[in-house]
Design a protein around this nucleic acid. Structure first.
Length: 587
RNA sequence: GGCUCUGUGGCUCAGUUGGUUAGAGUACCGCCCUGUCACGGCGGGGGUCAGGGGUUCAAGUCCCCUCAGAGUCGCCA
């Protein structure tokens, strides 16, 4: 007998039908003469009933059932009497009166309950990930992830994109993240790199005339993990020919609107806000601002400049440094002295030396720094920060990077602590006009903010020679609730400009050609203007699932040491394997 | 590489200023029970207190090291 329907699909429309269900025993309630068996599959749970109607052999089987046994139950779908309807489950109006019960497989008692919302340690869940994935909330996440990918494929297909696979064994390019390397057996001493992204291949596909490309593709970066970073992760990657920034943005807004509607049931308004990078930094201290709450940064440098508060006035007199503030509404009551000390420790994580604060009380300002400031100066601070009685103003003064990093993070930390975030909001926005380059103090050279193939703004090209740090790029990131969902750019499509870019990054012509010669060579053969973008599918799924970690939307994720606790990868391999790969073992 | 947190039956936790035989809930096992859905009743088994070392008359508890996991800074073009 074959399965006729999934457990979770049964409802009152099936009343009177004889059905065959197959699944796992979620729970049994054995009352002696009648046994209730909750049978679970991917779609849900339904109650089967073994009672006097059942033949003796089947009843014996029913009595022997335990959690997670695999069963097949044949029976008639019957309505429950009104007093036994279970409103807690979707199938609660009906039950399957068993006429045959078959045990397909026994099971050990699982190490944790196979149900939603368990608080079992993640380490244990990951060790038995195959059981964790049997839990309804994990199944929901994985199904939702599938839906996002499915919608993307449909959407891209409808809009003329071709899904094209690019190689997994590629050439290592030391710019950017650390590569995962794969030794070549056939070429002793040579290594492939697993792709950090299909960047160069998709650009070459544009040159090939594929016009529009997309791929849902695994990417690899050998860097430390975070709650939202795994060493292997999935990009929804796309590239388009003969487009400008508006074209790329609008096609992606269409995709996002569709995903939000069909997966989250949320109508998002397009077009999304576009915020220049500089504005994002000034107002939010971040290039991925969370705009679900206020507490924007305010520049108070001019007030402190020349003031009696030497610590700050010295700092703000330096170029590239500033004193900025955020105003916490009602902070006087909400933040204790102990909280302020904790927040000071918090900003120190980001390199700040300390944090100054002013409590705006009814008749006076309570603050360790007020005594160094004139009335005129404190009035200016209050008016700039729009502080009112009861508010607390928090200040950090340092190099701009430290000020932005610490206050940007502090703003988010306070929003979480003080519960200021409306969780029902989905605030999408584009951050645009990124700088093309940023200066790396340790390497004493410019590095690409986005990547070396990103095109500079036409009007800024002349600055490349004179003031590289000021050059803006045709790059854009899509931000959702303070998370970088994805990003992209228009690309450089002529060899001379690409060479110029590499030069700025400190490559000699020879070095550039050694690494990226195939690309620059290709560019000579008629490259269309093109650009594209890539999303972190895991992050998108994480946010829509309401999860705190991308591990919750990845079937078999890795832990912080980049290992996999279920299979114990990575592992030590046979010396023979290493020898074949020409890798010498040093004892 | 740095900082912070966590580790006690299968799971989730309690365990006081160091002081009898380390407890609870749940899960598990046995018996009973014909309308339960957190079923119920009676009975039962289960602990290298992450590992190692130290202090002490005495360590789950204090100290040191190691291991494992989480968050985060650096890092992530």
């Amino acid at each position: 007998m074959k399965r006729t329907i999934m457990c979770g699909q049964l409802n009152s429309k099936n009343i009177g039908e004889t059905v065959v269900i197959q699944g796992w025993v979620a729970k049994t309630r054995d009352l002696g003469g009648v046994i209730f068996i909750d049978v679970r599959d991917r779609e849900g749970i339904v109650q089967a009933v073994a009672n006097e109607n059942l033949d003796k052999d089947s009843f014996k089987v029913a009595e022997s059932l335990a959690r997670e046994y695999v069963v097949q139950i044949t029976g008639e779908v019957k309505p429950r009497s009104s007093e036994t309807i279970n409103k807690n489950i979707p199938t609660g109006e009906i039950e399957v009166i068993a006429t045959n019960v078959v045990l397909l497989n026994k099971a050990e008692t699982p190490p944790f309950e196979i149900e939603a919302d368990i608080d079992t340690n993640e380490q244990v869940r990951l060790k038995y990930r195959y059981l964790d994935l049997r839990r309804p909330d994990m199944q929901k996440n994985i199904i939702m992830r599938h839906k996002i990918a499915k919608i993307a494929r449909d959407y891209f297909d409808e809009n003329g994109f071709l899904e094209i696979e690019t190689p997994m064994l590629t050439k290592s390019t030391p710019e950017g993240a650390r590569d995962y390397l794969v030794p070549s057996r056939v070429n002793p001493g040579h290594f492939y790199a697993l792709p950090q992204s299909p960047q160069l291949y998709k650009q070459l596909l544009m040159l090939s005339g594929m016009d529009r490309y997309f791929q849902i593709v695994r990417c690899f970066r050998d860097e430390d993990l975070r709650a939202d970073r795994q060493p292997e992760f999935t990009q929804m990657d796309l590239e388009m020919s003969f487009v400008d920034q508006d074209d790329v943005i609008s096609i992606n807004e269409g995709l996002i609107a569709r995903v939000m509607k069909e997966v989250a049931g949320v109508e998002v308004k397009t077009p999304f806000v576009r915020m220049p990078y500089n504005v994002a930094m000034q107002k939010y201290g971040s290039d991925k601002p969370d705009t679900r709450f206020g507490m924007e940064l305010v520049d108070t440098s001019d007030v402190f400049l020349g003031s009696g508060f030497k610590t700050f006035s010295d700092i703000v007199s330096k170029v590239g440094s500033s004193a900025r503030a955020i105003c916490v509404k009602g902070g006087v009551d909400k933040l204790s002295r102990r909280d302020l000390d904790a927040l000071t420790d918090f900003v120190k994580i980001y390199g700040a030396k300390g944090m100054a604060w002013i409590n705006v009380c009814e008749d006076e300002l309570k603050s360790p720094i007020a005594k160094f400031l004139t009335k005129q100066e404190t009035d200016a601070l209050l008016s700039k920060t729009e502080a009112e009685v009861g508010d607390t103003i928090l200040f950090v003064a340092d190099k701009n990077k430290v000020v932005f990093d610490s206050l940007g993070a502090l703003r988010c930390e306070l929003a979480t602590r003080l519960n200021l975030i409306d969780k029902s909001l989905y605030n999408f926005l584009w951050v645009v006009d990124f700088p093309l380059l940023e200066y790396d103090d340790t390497e004493k050279r410019y590095t690409a903010k986005h990547h070396p193939f990103t095109a500079p703004n036409d009007s800024d090209i002349s600055l490349m020679e004179t003031n590289p740090g000021e050059v803006r790029a045709k790059a854009y990131d899509i931000i959702l609730n303070g998370n970088e969902l994805g990003g992209g750019s228009l690309r450089i499509y002529n060899t001379e400009l690409q060479e110029k870019m590499f030069k700025l990054l400190g490559f000699t012509t020879d070095e550039a050609w050694a690494r990226f010669g195939f690309l620059m060579e290709a560019f000579k053969y008629g490259t269309p203007p093109h650009g594209g973008m890539a999303y972190g599918l895991d992050r998108f799924a994480m946010i829509l699932a309401g999860a705190d970690s991308i591990r919750d939307v990845i079937a078999f994720p890795k832990v912080q040491t980049a290992s996999e606790v279920m299979s114990n990868a990575p592992n030590v391999v046979d010396i023979k394997q290493l020898e074949e790969l020409h890798i010498k073992v040093v004892e």
